[in-house]
Write a protein that binds this DNA or RNA. Sequence first.
DNA 1: CTGTTAGCGCATTCAC
DNA 2: GTGAATGCGCTAACAG
Lengths: 337, 337
Amino acid sequence: MKRHQTTIIDIARALNISKSTVSRALTGHPNVNAQTRKAVLELAEKMEYERNMLAISLVKNKSFTIGIIVPEFMTTFFPQVVIGAQEVAAKKGYNVIISQSNESYETEVANAKVMLTNRVDGVLVSLTKETRNFDHLKIFQRKGIPIVFFNRVCEEMEVPKVVTNDYDGAFNIVEHLIQRGKKRIAHLAGPDSLLISRKRLNGYLDALRKNNIPVIEELIIPYDLTLEKVKIYVKYLLELPDPPDALFAINDPTAMEAIQIIKAKGLRIPEDIAVAGFSNDFASALIEPGLTTVSQPMREIGKTAMQLLLEMMDKEVSEWKAITRTLKAELIIRGSS
Amino acid sequence: MKRHQTTIIDIARALNISKSTVSRALTGHPNVNAQTRKAVLELAEKMEYERNMLAISLVKNKSFTIGIIVPEFMTTFFPQVVIGAQEVAAKKGYNVIISQSNESYETEVANAKVMLTNRVDGVLVSLTKETRNFDHLKIFQRKGIPIVFFNRVCEEMEVPKVVTNDYDGAFNIVEHLIQRGKKRIAHLAGPDSLLISRKRLNGYLDALRKNNIPVIEELIIPYDLTLEKVKIYVKYLLELPDPPDALFAINDPTAMEAIQIIKAKGLRIPEDIAVAGFSNDFASALIEPGLTTVSQPMREIGKTAMQLLLEMMDKEVSEWKAITRTLKAELIIRGSS
DNA sequence: CTGTTAGCGCATTCAC
DNA sequence: GTGAATGCGCTAACAG
């Protein structure tokens, strides 16, 4: 059970010098005799000494760790964002501890607690679809731990946020469908709890209005992002007396699921019904027909969020600004429209 | 810069009792007066006290953290494995710190160092395609830190490993292609450095031999898993005087890339050339035609690996056994064959 | 350039 | 049941 661990004391004793000198040599402090330094470094190497970050963190009151809370890891989106974030963090010598809330509010709360007890120096979070209470996240603010939201942001907290231009993305893709001659455009929307759902819905609505296309309530279906349910909604839409000639889905997985169902029904895409998604998932280029979608700069989102976080950590709490960085969403037209 | 932090001392002072009593109350020690305990717990809640794991870890010489090193996060495979591992770890109160080596040996070494300095209680690792030297991982063994490999395992280290039955999977899928009447089956193989590459290659070879199909060297191409290069190899194969009538790719992304290229060439799948992959990526069911592949129990791999690791941590180093758990690979037949 | 001292927040002896 | 003392491994003043 007891683990071997070389400490500074060990090499201090072996070299018959003081611990502080060893410490200084190890941390690259200037005031150390070149020979002493060399001896220390060599012995440290030989003894496989590794600095104990736990101890360093304790005395420095800084863990060099950033927490990231994401709702899921199933789609390409969040893993990609995390990669971006990790890259930036690593460059600055920060570790990242990731936890996925699994779209559960309670798990999110638990994860936040873990981050707290682990004394992360900052957190990046993207909310659960269930989250409506934010006490567990406000604690970070209160404790002076910087927090940055990305993608699924919290409206009632005044902190930095990184989002894609959901409204524009939705607006453009719907207008594109209209230009393709589509008039009855359905929208499989996300849960109302998420701001991104509402933004995309608004983009959809405004595109219709601007082009004098009537908004038909029965063609707008908010759903909880549970892929299994897509079948129900798509069937409902297709069996309508006056079915839609296009479908704009809240995200790519939903759209791809819809494509499968539509194809199984024997309908042609895009002739009978066009389909559009959101995010430009890896698979959306592979599916047949290719999915028209809006690309989100996933890596970039992660990078930007982490950069904002790191910047906050260098500043006084009083200087923190609740800026929202909106990254561009780009229309990608493929065979499904 | 200085962060507010409620400590045991704070609540000890507020309640005018000793730190040890507070500590005992907080940790659920039996020898505490019920009222005192209640008072402590309430105040702790009110003051938003959170245990400082850094300090606890230091004194307990245990970080309650598991490190996971994966080569990449682009395909569905590793994120899924990580989810499984995380689930099991969380249930036992362990955190997980993830780092991706990005298929770079040097990054892997650096990541291992980070794990070491962060005093992880154990590590799960899946190797880089470049890794041929294992000193950075052997250190864990030497320091008595349990290590478990999964998927891309290290042959020369005697530690627990979790793998899929790559040989059987490859054998079965190739035999399936043969049953479909295919006789010139190409194999876009993985780098020779990876055991999985060799196992799958062997499965391929044995399936051919068992069915008296000649092994044609020019149809076997090992490559470095860089997707951009797939185009070169597939074109080469298709332009052969006697081109293959089937292609078995080392993994699904490669196979899907090949499908795109083959379709662009105007060839029919599977009539002109059948395609098969490995892993059952999310997208393989979506692509047209659906990709015939071998499913790996990704979540299960993560869970199993983490379980093995957790078990080791409860045992003396002398009791550690280098068992290899081989999970079943299941043939999934779709339209591409 | 080097050694000494103090203390980070906590669990854990050992006394009472 | 409670308190006082010790130390986990390390950095950061403070002296020389």
